[in-house]
């Protein structure tokens, strides 16, 4: 994937052909399931996801803003925090894009997301303070991962340990790329950054240009054991088991019933591996 430069290859086809073929568009579906540990305690699912769209005229696929968030288990109001975070983030990012339309270049998108990050943190703190008081901000602790689909650009802003995998071309395991993930090794994974942390300024922001992107899979850390692995150096990478590729492939089908995503999250093989809330928000480029 490149950042701001046109590749020296022919880009993927977009727009209507002379024969009036339907243009490419993003198909987006999400699912979230309460983790077993929360079921036992009678607690809410602390994961949330949201999606907003900007419908435009023109031949390119519409712009979409996607977000997932994971409330901190130790924070008593984190379920509210995660819901507030995804709703607020998608709205603020969309409202930044709306006045001038889709970003033209990856640097433009990156700059937009960096500005949005500051606004999201400030506004989140303002709202929580108004609701519960400044001394209780930490009770709403949550991670947040935002993706902007502005084909052929994709940008992201992430605070915490959510992750994003992109598919390029015709799919298959070799065409899955881990675009972003919180990278702490498991033994030291005790320092998750939250939207309420003093270190929330240490968000990861980036945007890339790639006309070959055909799918995006984003999730909270609950699905890391199922979809990612650690290489010998301890770095995260896409797992060899084709979970992500299969999910994106299913979504390629117009007739796919999205309840299948919930079925996946409820599989015993998944709940054996992770007791955490699990969430996925996926998008495929299709006609």
């Amino acid at each position: 994937m490149t950042s701001g430069r046109q590749p020296a290859r022919q880009p993927a086809p977009t727009g209507r052909s002379a024969g009036g073929v339907r243009p490419y568009r993003w198909r987006i579906r999400g699912a979230s399931v309460q983790g077993y540990s929360h079921v036992r305690e009678g607690k809410w699912c602390e994961d949330s996801f949201a999606h907003l769209s900007l419908y435009e005229r023109g031949s390119l696929p519409d712009v979409h803003v996607l977000a997932v968030a994971d409330g901190a288990g130790s924070a008593p109001r984190s379920a509210e925090g995660s819901r507030l975070a995804v709703a607020m983030a998608t709205r603020l990012v969309r409202d930044r894009i709306h006045p001038s339309g889709r970003p033209a270049t990856a640097p433009d998108l990156r700059q937009l997301l960096a500005a949005a990050h500051e606004e999201i943190v400030t506004e989140f703190r303002r709202v929580v303070t108004a609701v519960a008081g400044r001394e209780h901000i930490g009770e709403f602790a949550t991670t947040l991962t935002v993706v902007v689909l502005a084909y052929p650009l994709i940008g992201y802003l992430s605070i915490g340990d959510g992750f994003i995998v992109v598919r390029t071309g015709e799919g298959g395991q070799t065409n899955l790329h881990l675009l972003d993930a919180g990278s702490a090794d498991p033994e030291h994974a005790s320092q998750t950054v939250f939207l309420t942390s003093d270190t929330s300024r240490a968000a990861r922001v980036n945007a890339v240009y790639d006309p070959w992107i055909t799918g995006v899979f984003m999730s909270t850390d609950g699905l890391i054991p199922v979809t990612l692995r650690r290489d010998p150096e301890g770095r995260l990478a896409v797992a060899t088991e084709p979970v992500i590729d299969t999910v994106l492939g299913l979504l390629d089908d117009d007739h796919f019933d999205a309840s299948g995503l919930v079925q996946l999250l409820l599989r015993e093989a998944v709940t054996e591996v992770t007791q955490d809330d699990t969430t996925l928000l996926v998008a495929v480029l299709c006609r």
Partner: peptide, 22 residues
């Protein structure tokens, strides 16, 4: 892909899930 007409639920139910690595 065109001939893979298995029901999606069959596909979902048979996706290999990684064994726990930690």
């Amino acid at each position: 892909r065109a001939t893979d007409r298995r029901q999606p639920r069959d596909v979902i139910g048979n996706i290999p899930i990684p064994r726990p690595s930690h």
